[in-house]
């Protein structure tokens, strides 16, 4: 029986150049800006969830920003990303706007899903976000499906599935890996290992800390990276995307990171007996944004005052988006039955 060629590992080259200077200055500033935008937007969303102005369930991405920023900047606008229940970061980094985000959080007609989805259902088809879904692992086969379409249409686009460590426990993850590998689909699997699936730590769900081996049985090149190091994420993501775009097939990245807040909602969950305060504090100290900040300052790519000004600008954009969302109407009552089926 004849099997396929040896696997080509796109990540071998990534290990070679690890210094910050390997990523050009403009891009570093862009990564910083994107992460900061995610951070500030979600801190605001957390406040709104606390006061119940935002009523839908909100799964915050705080602490994980480097993954979405690093990956999305390796993509073209038309490349597709599929997200999960925790996708504010994916949405903003892929090009989704603050106004449609905040309006969606409030369930308004001007939201990105026109008030039909809330925080867990973000979409912007104009910039490669076909939709996010909170059903765990559901994003994985759909991203492979987008990749199949790209391959059939020969359009040179790449699809990305974002998903958590928990999602690798679903059968559909493994089923998708089988087909993505055998068909050399242009898809990148980004597993954001934040070490928890809701209340359950990874160690209670997996025998060994070996998620990065997930691609191995299928001969899908895989790597474990520091998901809080945005430059590392970007480098690996670029390699994975090039690998896919050049027709060599899928790859898998385990991005090790941490969600600062609880599984859902704004609470920190210090005292639920789920995780120790020291553990959270350890990860807070490894803030992906602060890490890049220090590098930017050291390289003199930005000054403190540039950062303050940037933060102010972002905060103004957020307040504008919130004001816009607040002024927007709810979807009209007579739209309740619309779009169950396609309307032309």
């Amino acid at each position: 029986m004849l099997f396929h060629d040896e696997m080509i590992d796109p990540f071998q080259a990534c290990q070679a150049f690890a210094s910050a200077s390997a990523v050009d200055a403009d891009l570093q500033v862009r990564l910083y800006t994107l992460m900061l935008k995610c951070r500030r937007a979600e801190e605001r969303a957390a406040e709104l969830a606390e006061t119940r102005e935002v009523g839908c369930p909100v799964h915050l991405y705080l602490g994980q920003e480097a993954v979405s920023a690093g990956v999305c900047t390796a993509l073209k606008t038309e490349d597709q990303v599929f997200g999960t229940h925790r996708s504010h970061g994916h949405f903003l980094c892929k090009g989704g706007g603050l106004r449609p985000l905040f309006a969606e959080l409030l369930g308004k007609a001007t939201g990105c899903a026109r008030g039909r989805g809330g925080s867990m259902h973000l979409i912007d088809t104009s910039c490669g976000i076909p939709g996010t879904t909170p059903i765990v692992a559901a994003s994985i086969p759909m991203a492979a499906g987008a990749a199949l379409a790209n391959k059939m249409k020969k359009n040179g686009l790449v699809a990305v599935a974002f998903f958590g460590d928990g999602a690798t426990e679903e059968g559909v993850f493994h089923e998708t890996m089988v087909m993505a590998a055998i068909w050399d689909l242009p898809v990148v699997f980004i597993c954001e290992n934040n070490f928890y699936a809701s209340h359950l730590p990874l160690k209670d769900r997996r025998k060994r800390d070996n998620l990065a081996d997930a691609g191995k049985p299928y001969s899908i090149p895989s790597a474990r990276i520091d998901g809080n190091n945005v430059l590392e994420v970007h480098r690996y993501a670029r390699a994975a995307v090039e690998h896919a775009r050049s027709g060599r097939g899928p790859s898998f990245l385990e991005c090790r990171t941490y969600r600062w807040r609880g599984h859902v909602g704004p609470a920190w969950e210090w005292n639920l007996g789920i995780r120790k305060r020291e553990e959270v504090e350890e990860w807070l100290a490894r803030c992906p944004i602060r890490a890049l900040e220090q590098q930017l300052l050291a390289q003199k790519l930005m000054r403190e005052e540039d950062m303050t000004a940037l933060r102010q600008k972002i905060d103004e954009e957020i307040e504008d988006a919130l004001a816009f969302a607040r002024q927007s109407p709810y979807p009209a009552m007579d739209t309740l039955l619309r779009h169950v089926y396609v309307e032309r």
């Binding site: 009523g55 899903a113 008030g115 039909r116 709810y330 979807p331 309740l336 039955l337």
Partner: peptide, 16 residues
């Protein structure tokens, strides 16, 4: 239920 999936925003949920 009306013949549609569950909506999201409060006023629609109220009606649904």
């Amino acid at each position: 239920l009306p013949p549609c999936p569950a909506p999201m925003c409060k006023p629609h949920e109220e009606a649904y």
